[in-house]
């Protein structure tokens, strides 16, 4: 009895119906925070004494990097739940999380490179954090490629969940070793790791952006999960009714 909610949570149909109520809140709050954070960070936060205006890229770079890493753990945890409790919904969330995480990793890599040009004079340095981010990007691509290679969805789910878990075990080791590698090769002229304290007037917009990114992530993850659910439950009665309804609503049939 106590487990009933758990099983209900595992039902894609239940999730699809419940989540439609969350969507406007998540999306609205996320977009408002992002908008406020962007305007604040771009226009109202003071200019950095050392880096000038280029530091404003931080307001998207840092949150994207946060979520790129958090997204991998979310993906792996969902995969683990799916493998252990054979929960269908959990696999769907995992599959939805992979492209989102890859996109966020791409954003953080791209913005980092663009930020690097005016700050260090070069787009790309093999700095520890950038390199780790690149490897994280490859891990995401690997999970996506593996899940796309199977013709049966169930095999794809389980295989990519396992790969995500293996990746999770490896991420700390990869980070540590890349860090060590970088200290070994660090050129004396480049000092990229600054542990400087950040002024509140610059910090509040950053917090706003981070919160906005988290909400946006939750919103987009829900959206992707919902559309994957529809794709998978294609043959079930409730999806047929739902699609039938919406196709009538858009007026494309009859």
């Amino acid at each position: 009895m106590a487990w009933q909610w758990f099983h209900r949570l595992g039902s894609p149909r239940w999730f699809y119906q419940k989540s439609s109520a969350w969507l406007p809140w998540l999306g609205g709050a996320g977009l408002i925070l992002l908008l406020v954070g962007c305007v604040w960070g771009l226009g109202f936060a003071p200019e950095d004494a050392k880096q000038g205006n280029s530091y404003r890229i931080m307001y998207i770079h840092v949150p994207a990097a946060f979520l790129a890493l958090a997204g991998y753990y979310i993906m792996a945890i969902c995969g683990a739940i799916g493998l252990i409790w054979k929960m269908k919904l959990s696999f769907v969330v995992m599959r939805a999380a992979a492209p989102i995480g890859a996109a966020l990793t791409f954003i953080s890599l791209f913005t980092g490179a663009v930020w690097g040009k005016p700050t260090w004079g070069t787009y790309w340095v093999w700095d520890a954090r950038i390199t780790s981010m690149l490897i994280l990007f490859f891990l995401y691509l690997g999970v996506m490629a593996l899940s796309g290679a199977f013709s049966r969805e169930q095999s794809a789910d389980k295989a990519s969940a396992l790969l995500a878990l293996v990746g999770t075990v490896n991420i700390p080791i990869i980070y540590k070793s890349v860090d060590w590698w970088f200290t070994l090769h660090q050129p004396a002229t480049l000092k990229l790791t600054e542990a400087s304290t950040i002024d509140p007037s610059m910090f509040y917009p950053l917090i706003t952006m981070i919160a906005g990114f988290y909400l946006f992530y939750a919103w987009v993850l829900t959206l992707h999960t919902r559309s994957l659910i529809l794709q998978r439950e294609w043959r079930t009665q409730w999806v047929r009714e739902l699609l039938g309804q919406s196709s009538v609503a858009t007026g494309s049939t009859r």
């Binding site: 999306g27 992002l34 962007c38 771009l42 200019e47 000038g52 205006n53 280029s54 404003r56 890229i57 998207i60 770079h61 994207a64 492209p99 989102i100 996109a103 791409f106 954003i107 791209f110 913005t111 663009v114 930020w115 040009k117 005016p118 946006f216 919103w219 987009v220 959206l223 992707h224 919902r226 559309s227």
Partner: peptide, 25 residues
């Protein structure tokens, strides 16, 4: 102050990717 192209390029690409994420479903 001369950093415009970098800042705006970073923001535009980020927004484009985020919009793409929201629209694909």
């Amino acid at each position: 102050n001369g950093h415009g192209p970098y800042v705006w390029a970073a923001y535009l690409v980020a927004v484009a990717v985020l919009v793409a994420l929201a629209v694909t479903p």
